[in-house]
Design a binder for these strands. Structure first.
Lengths: 209, 209
DNA sequence: TTGTCAATTGTCAGTAGCTGTCATTACCGT
DNA sequence: ACGGTAATGACAGCTACTGACAATTGACAA
């Protein structure tokens, strides 16, 4: 199962990710060439493109993994929760596991810096949003399944996931723009934003929230 | 004000847009080269890139204009509406004006087909989502201004716009995937989806909606 | 009308992302 | 040890995009 071949591939892939992230963080995404990344790991450019379909993919690899873990955590939820609670509670519960999974690939600190690079690099932000949309569709299917409704007829699963995901992305974006971004802070900011979902929709906003 | 130079530029730009859209719709975005577009309008490739920063931009030009018009319509709203009502009512009111503005550049039918191309082409979808995010930020500022709150301290403007925009994009996406996409249908679908925003968030979903 | 200035355009050369192909190397199971 | 298969490197090629410079064309005043 874990032949030498497999392990070597895994190591090369992780090395490419870490090397790429370090270059992206230090000199910027656009100013880093694929040749530089390949050279840093001592493989050919062609090999890089055998591991990652494009330059964006290596930048978003960890982010995508986080999204996937969240999705799996949603799927593993016990039945009986309301759809919104399901999405919300998963957030609290999955946090630590996600952090550990990230650290198996790259230092957490590097990942946090990479989040900022993603938010501030137009091409990466665009790709990230698209990947998020794909994940949303998977969430829609799961939420619909749990609630026992048909996602093609009932708009509520899509509406709920769209609203929730929109708020999540906004929270992540606001968090990444702070200069002291840490994991706990992320947890707090997302919690705060999601909690405001109800109040923000009510007819009148009273005084300063 | 309308010198020959200005008019000529406008005409070239519109010709590039229409030619590009026709090529994208008939043979696909990825399979259309910038050289083909330039050739269709009989200008050099270099000139194309003087009108549009990149290939995506010519594909998203009309979409961006629509977003801009919606934003301006929001800004022109009378005071006193609740934030959510403001966003929602603008939708109803601005529809016809937007349609007319589009037709001054490209046939409406071509634009509708182009919407489908955008939704189904990864690179275009990604760029479109990013442009939408920029527009959301402008909406946040305007909503915060109208409500007299500080968007940097109070999360509600961002949360509201994120939720609303998420639902809008979902509606647009669902609409574009029908095979009989028309303007009226778009109006109806978006209306339906936005109306579900409240119900989708409530704790329990009763029976099939 | 004509000449001058500035804006627009075309041409050319170059970089970077990405792909197909084929020979070579490295691992795996027998 | 050996044959087969997977991974890699080297190379050629395409397309998006950019900088630089020369040529053209419309604007505007003398």
């Amino acid at each position: 199962m874990t032949g030498l071949r497999e392990r070597k591939k895994q190591r090369t892939r992780d090395a490419l990710i870490v090397a790429a992230h370090e270059l992206f963080v230090t000199q910027g995404y656009e100013d880093t060439t694929v040749d530089q990344i390949a050279e840093a790991v001592d493989v050919s450019q062609r090999t890089f493109f055998r591991y990652f379909a494009n330059k964006e993919e290596v930048a978003l690899f960890v982010q995508d993994m986080v999204g996937q873990l969240y999705y799996e955590a949603v799927c593993a939820r016990p039945a009986g929760e309301s759809p919104l609670d399901c999405l919300r509670n998963t957030l609290d519960d999955a946090w630590d596991d996600v952090g550990e999974a990230v650290e198996e690939i790259t230092p957490l600190d590097l990942h946090l810096k990479m989040c900022q690079v993603i938010e501030t690099t137009p091409a990466l932000l665009a790709a990230h949003l698209r990947h998020s949309l794909l994940m949303e569709e998977k969430l829609v299917q799961e939420i619909a399944r749990r609630a026992g409704v048909d996602a093609e007829k009932d708009p509520r699963p899509r509406v709920l996931v769209a609203a929730f995901s929109g708020v999540m992305r906004t929270a992540a974006r606001q968090w990444s723009m702070r200069n002291d971004s840490s994991l706990q802070l992320a947890r707090q900011v997302t919690g705060d934003y999601v909690a405001q979902l109800g109040p923000a929709l009510t007819a009148d906003w009273g005084q300063q929230g």
